[in-house]
Amino acid sequence: MVIVRPWSRIVDDFLAHALLGGIGVALAAGPLGAFIVWRRMAYFGDTLAHSGLLGIVLGTVLNLNLQLGVAVTCLLMALALVLLQRQRRLATDTLLGILAHTALSLGLVALAFLETVRVDLTGYLFGDILAIGRIDLYWIWGGALLALVALAWLWRPLLAITVHEELAQVEGVPVFPVRLAFMLLVAIVIAVAMKVVGILLITSLLIVPAAAARRFARSPEGMALLASGLGCAAVGIGLWASLRWDTPAGPSVVMAAAFLFVLSSVVPDRSWR
């Protein structure tokens, strides 16, 4: 069955896809980003994201779904980091710096070997939100919903280990499994967010809305919800600006988030502090 659709309908479709995809990512990125901010793990998220390109290559070579390839690579990266942290000769941020750029470079070098495959590097690095298709939407919403449900389930123990890890352990929280599960969620969200803002900008979608939400939040849950809301607003504003001024969509979304953050810093303080 072939349905012939007018041109305007197709434009609407790709805009709707972009908006739906962006919102799906923003919803999951809000609460997860709040935890990344509270746990001071921004650089950690960045490092995982940098390994995303390697996941693309692996996914292509092994003929896997690309999002799956990215998620698996991010998770392996997180595990490598946990193992490396056991030896305490190097500080964590040094390790992260080494891992992040090694992984990115490795991804770029490996990509060069894939001569037969045409790869849109810019799309992977900075996102290609306007090319989101129906299948992409399933992956994004599937991943985002999975991450949100799992986070809701993990919420209390994760909050407890964020506040004080050893105290939580004495009180019976299985610290290591919870931390591992959290890393898995970060890997999933990075994998699904890649299409929207690209691996170099993903961290901003995680931490900027959360940081902007801080000044208005009175509870962890409030901050997480507000971060989701601000992330969705950033997606909407960024897409609109991108169409209006013909700017790249992914970076425009990040600019919109940054704009909201600046706005949140100048309005009068409504939280306790």
Binding site: V37, W38, R39, T162, A210, R214, A217, S219, P220
Partner: peptide, 8 residues
């Protein structure tokens, strides 16, 4: 505790 965590 990180200052960004709003916790009563």
């Amino acid at each position: 505790l990180d200052d960004t965590l709003p916790l009563s």
